[in-house]
Simulated scan of single mutants.
Amino acid sequence: MTDDNIAGIPQAAPASITSIAETSAAVLAAVESVVIGQGEPLRIAMASILAGGHVLFEDVPGLGKTLAARSLASAMGLPFRRLQCTPDLLPADITGSYVYAPTSGDFVFRPGPVFTGLLLADELNRTAPKTQSALLEAMAEAQVTVEGTSFALPAPFHVIATANPIEYEGTYALPEAQLDRFLVRLSVGYPNRTEEERVLANRLARRQEVATVAAVTDAEGLLAMQAGVERVHVDADILRYCVDLAAATRADRTVEVGASPRGSQALMLVARSLAVMDGRDYVTPDDVKRVAVPALAHRLTLTPAAWAAGTDAARIVAGIVDMVPGPPVVARGGTVHSGTGS
C-alpha cells in the first residue's frame, strides 16, 4: 500500500472472501459478547483494520472505548499495549530510547510501547503536541526513528486512539495533520436502555471487573485477511463516487479546507473491507455511504463563521451524501444488482 495512512504490510498468502467474512464475523461476535451496543462502530473499526489503517474513537468517557480496543486486539490475537496519555508524557515514552548498558559499556536501544501489534493511545488529546507527533511516523510508515536510526515496527501494526471531546482544560486538540492519519474517526454513543441493562447484567455474571475475549485469529491470520481484501474489485463508477463525495466537501461554503485525496482513498479502502466482511467481492454505493461520515468528517476544516455557529462536520458530510448522486451497484463482470445509489 502506498498511502500515508496505511502501515507497511509484508506479503502474505491472501485469504478467500468467504474466509475473511467468516473470521470477521467471529471476531465481532467475540468482541460484542463483552462490548454492548457498539455494533456499527465496531464493524467499521474492524473494516479499517482490515484496510490497514488506524482508528480514532472520540466520545465522552465511560462508553467502553478502551474495552472495545482491548477486545478487538484480543479477538484478533494481536500483541497489545496500552499507553495512557498525560501532559508529562515524552516522545521517548512512546518510541523508546537509548539507555546505557553497564555490562557492555554501550548505549542500546530499548523499544517503547509502540513496538506492538495494536497500540491503544488512551486520551491522546491529553498529551502535548510534541508527544502526539511521535506517533506520526509510526502511523504513516510503520517505523520510528530515534537519534537518526530507523527501527521497523512489527507487522501488522495498528493504532486505536481515544479522545475526550468535552473537556478542554489540560487537553491539546489534535492538529489536522494528525487527524488525517486516522483512517476513520468513530463516535460510540450512549447505549439504549436494553443495552445498558445488558452491560450491568454481564458485569454481575462474570463476577470480576476485567472482561476477557478469546483469540479468534492471530497476526498471521490478519495479514492473510488484509492480503485478501487487496484483491477485491472496485468498479470505476465507485471510484468516481468516492471522488465526487470528497470533491463536494471542498465546494461546500461552510468548509474552509475539504477532504484531500487521502479522504477519497479512505472511503474506497474502508468500503472495500465492508464489502468483504459482507461476503462480496465488489463494492456498492451503500458501502461507501456507511463510511462517509467516519472517513471524511474529521478531515474537514470549517470556516470561522461555521465553527462559531456550532456547525457539525458530520452533518455536513451527511448532507453531502444525500445530495451527491451515486452510481448503479455493479459487481465484477458488469452485472447491475440494484438501482442508483442515491
Rank of each mutant, 00 (worst) to 15 (best):
V144I: 12
I94T: 03
T145R: 08
R280Y: 09
I6V: 14
R262Q: 03
T116A: 05
Q208G: 11
H337F: 15
V27R: 01
R290L: 14
N192I: 03
Q226N: 02
A75H: 02
G37W: 13
G105Q: 09
A308G: 13
S264I: 08
A248T: 02
A47F: 06
Y98R: 13
S74L: 14
M225T: 11
R110T: 10
R299W: 01
L56Q: 08
G53M: 03
E169H: 10
V184Q: 10
K289G: 12
Q38D: 00
L89C: 05
V213M: 12
A25W: 05
E230S: 15
R81V: 15
G339H: 10
E40G: 06
A161N: 01
S342H: 14
A309P: 06
P129S: 01
F107D: 03
E40R: 12
G96W: 00
A266Y: 02
T145P: 05
A138S: 09
P294W: 07
V35R: 00
A68Y: 00
A248H: 09
G339M: 04
M268Y: 02
T340M: 15
Q11S: 15
R280I: 02
S33D: 14
P156M: 09
A309L: 15
D122I: 00
R198P: 07
T212M: 13
G333S: 04
Q178W: 00
R193E: 12
V108S: 15
A224K: 01
L174M: 02
V317T: 05
A314C: 03
G52H: 01
G96N: 11
S16W: 07
R185N: 06
A266Q: 04
E58Y: 08
D287M: 07
R126K: 12
V276Q: 01
H54W: 07
V31M: 10
V229W: 04
A305N: 08
Q226H: 03
P165T: 04
A236Q: 15
G258C: 04
S71G: 04
A251G: 09
S187W: 04
T303P: 14
A101N: 15
P327K: 12
V199T: 08
A152W: 11
V288N: 00
D322N: 10
P328W: 05
A247H: 07
K289A: 03
V159R: 03
E220V: 14
S33Y: 04
V184P: 01
V329H: 15
H337G: 13
A92I: 06
A101R: 15
M323S: 14
V293E: 06
E197T: 15
D281S: 05
L300M: 01
P304E: 11
A138R: 07
N192V: 09
E141P: 07
I20D: 01
S273R: 05
S187L: 10
N202T: 13
H54L: 13
A134K: 05
E220L: 11
I316R: 02
F57V: 02
A211Y: 03
V283L: 13
R70F: 05
L274F: 02
L300W: 02
G341L: 11
I166Q: 14
V270G: 07
M225E: 08
D180M: 01
A259L: 09
A251P: 09
A292M: 05
S260D: 06
V329Y: 10
L83C: 04
Y98L: 05
L63N: 03
